[in-house]
């Protein structure tokens, strides 16, 4: 122990303390602070880069999901539109058919009515003509018959006979 403390040199102790404290402050300013700052900055940078990469990956996945969704929506919309168009087409055709049928029927009815009318008119005309013709014939006949006394009597008798039978 005596040997141990005999070796102790106060001067060296003072020099070591002064130099070492000086070294600590010098290195703190010029070495440790820049080194630790740079290392911390780098570590933060790496952390941020990893985080943003992860975020980008998530965003990408979101985007893809969005795209898929939009695509599906578009597809559904297209399908809906096609269906609607088909329905509309069918409806139009049906409508047109109905309308055409109705119009045809109406025309047929009109034509029938016209034909009936014409027929009636023709019949009336025919009747008038037949009646006038028969009157003329009858006139002529009568004129001829009446010129012959015997025939007149015969006719009257025939007529009377017809009347009696009725």
């Amino acid at each position: 122990m005596e040997e141990l403390f005999g070796q102790f040199s106060l001067g060296l102790f003072i020099m070591q303390t002064v130099l070492f404290v000086g070294l600590i402050f010098l290195l703190k300013k010029f070495a440790w602070k820049p080194i630790l700052d740079a290392v911390n900055e780098r570590e933060d940078g790496i952390k941020n880069a990893l985080l943003s990469a992860e975020n980008a990956r998530k965003e990408m996945a979101n985007l893809q999901a969005d795209n898929q969704r939009i695509l599906n929506e578009a597809r559904a919309e297209r399908d809906g539109m096609l269906k609607e168009a088909r329905e509309m087409k069918e409806k139009m055709i049906a409508d047109a058919k109905n309308e055409a049928t109705a119009a045809g029927e109406k025309m047929i009815a009109q034509a029938k009515a016209a034909i009936e009318g014409e027929k009636n008119a023709a019949m009336a005309d025919l009747k008038a003509q037949v009646s006038s013709l028969s009157l003329e014939i009858a006139e002529k006949l009568l004129k001829e018959e009446l010129s012959n006394k015997e025939a007149q009597v015969k006719l009257v008798e025939k007529m009377l006979g017809d009347a009696k039978m009725n």
């Binding site: 070294l23 070495a31 820049p34 290392v39």
Partner: peptide, 14 residues
């Protein structure tokens, strides 16, 4: 030696 070594290291980052 330490000063040159570590001050140099500190500068090399920049």
């Amino acid at each position: 030696l330490m000063f040159l070594l570590f001050a140099g290291l500190g500068k090399s980052y920049k």
